[in-house]
Simulated assay, not measured.
Amino acid sequence: MCGRYSLSKSKIDLEERFQAEMLADFKPRYNIAPTQLVPVITSDSPKGFSFFYWGITPDFGQNKPVSQKLINAKAETVHEKISFKSSFERRRCLVPADGFFEWKRLGKKTKIPNRFTLRDDSLFSFAGIWEEYEGLSGEVQHTFLILTTTPNELVEEVHDRMPVILSRENEKKWLDKYTSEAELLNMLKPYPVELMVSYPVSPLVNSVQNDSPGIIRKTSPMDQFGNYTLFG
């Protein structure tokens, strides 16, 4: 499962990388969590960033644990399941990111958060699908899900799934409504392990209330007392 990611680059970086216009006043995000409103690029509007809720909207997801929120879709079955099939065929999106988090279990109670990025620390995009529907108060709202696949060797050390990271050459094809189903499914593979790195980060990431640059800094290993210390 991909349950947390970062988008710590600037508005200018995003616009240049994706060749899309950001109308909103975007600020870097270090700890993006489900139900939050974040930028995506949709098949309907590929030249601009749209802001959609990840998974479900805050009002609908209030007081529900993350485990009960629908935030991901399996790449292996997204084209078959009734709940995802229409979105996969007609409403695909890019989800810009520069890293994602997973927790490595040590013992029965201890989990160490790890951040995964591209080796050059550049922006990339997850493969996503989106949906439009009427909210509880009658207004039209938009949500998206991130597609996941089997992990590469790096992510496999921590988790049994990883988000689908699209290559740059596949991003336009992912948004193109004329791309065949076979081509789309062929894109949904683990990202090459040699192009990725990972490192432990502060347990500050555990709380969705924390959203600061310190979250994505590399931390030292736990000492014998189980404490974390940020590198200078």
Rank of each mutant, 00 (worst) to 15 (best):
D25L: 08
R168C: 00
L154D: 13
K189L: 14
R161S: 06
E131H: 11
G107P: 03
M187Y: 12
H79I: 01
I165D: 11
V66S: 05
E171Q: 07
R217K: 05
T77V: 12
L166E: 03
Y228H: 15
K9C: 14
R90N: 15
S167Y: 11
P163I: 02
F231D: 04
S6T: 15
F51C: 07
F49M: 09
R115A: 14
V38S: 02
L147D: 11
A97H: 05
I71L: 10
S86E: 06
V78R: 00
V95A: 10
P151M: 13
L188T: 02
I215L: 08
E131C: 00
G48H: 01
K9Y: 15
R90P: 00
A73T: 05
V78L: 00
P192K: 07
D13R: 10
K108H: 12
N31T: 03
Q19F: 01
H79R: 01
V40D: 04
M196T: 03
N63T: 09
F101W: 02
R168D: 14
P213H: 06
G232F: 10
S212L: 09
V140H: 10
N210K: 05
K64Y: 07
F51P: 00
N114H: 13
T42G: 04
V78C: 00
N63F: 11
E131T: 11
Y228D: 13
T110Y: 01
S207G: 03
P190R: 09
C2G: 12
N72H: 02
H79S: 11
Q19Y: 04
F49V: 07
G99K: 01
S87W: 04
V95F: 13
D120M: 05
Q209T: 14
L166Q: 03
D120Y: 02
S202M: 02
E153W: 02
K64P: 05
F60P: 00
